[in-house]
């Protein structure tokens, strides 16, 4: 058998002039068991490449990764600062909102006993604070404002 073609391809392979297809031809050639003696040293090179191509990761690797990314997203991936801070402070906002709400309702109720006209102001403040607590970022300032309005109203009342 004439190995001129393979030898020629090999020369071009060392010179990095072979195409991907030609390199595949070389690989296929060297995969056969019987290779002429003078090419055995090169067969080892292609054999090692073949061996390296077989290194893979098992299925349990997939499962582990998918579990890490699809499991509890909060546990699996470190959340960006903003998101984490928001959920972390949520109870505080809720507590603040609740206190403000109770105060508002309390004062509003008191007002409605005293004078009907004036209490309409506080009614607005009350509904305002009722809607807001879900919106974490604005809860505190808004309810404070509501509370301030209520306080002003009660000051007005006492005058």
């Amino acid at each position: 058998m004439d190995y001129k073609y393979i030898e020629q391809l090999l020369e071009r392979y060392w010179a990095c002039e072979t195409s991907l297809q030609e390199e595949q031809i070389l690989r296929t050639f060297f995969q056969q068991q019987e290779v002429p003696e003078h090419l055995m040293a090169y067969k080892a090179i292609f054999d090692v490449q073949q061996e390296q191509a077989e290194a893979t990761l098992g299925e349990e690797f997939d499962e582990r990764i998918l579990e890490m990314i699809e499991g509890d997203p909060v546990k699996a991936i470190p959340l960006r600062g903003g998101l984490r801070r928001r959920s972390f402070l949520r109870p505080l906002y809720q507590a603040a909102g609740l206190v403000a709400l109770i105060l508002t309702i309390g004062i509003a109720a008191q007002h409605s006993f005293d004078e009907e006209g004036q209490s309409q102001h506080t009614q607005f403040a009350q509904t305002d604070s009722l809607e807001r607590p879900a919106d974490e970022f604005v809860t505190v300032p808004e309810t404070q404002e509501a509370a301030v309005t209520v306080e002003q109203d009660s000051i007005n009342l006492t005058r």
């Binding site: 055995m40 040293a41 067969k43 080892a44 054999d47 090692v48 061996e51």
Partner: peptide, 9 residues
Amino acid sequence: QKERLSLVR
């Protein structure tokens, strides 16, 4: 050939 392989590696 095994020795060859391990050297090439």
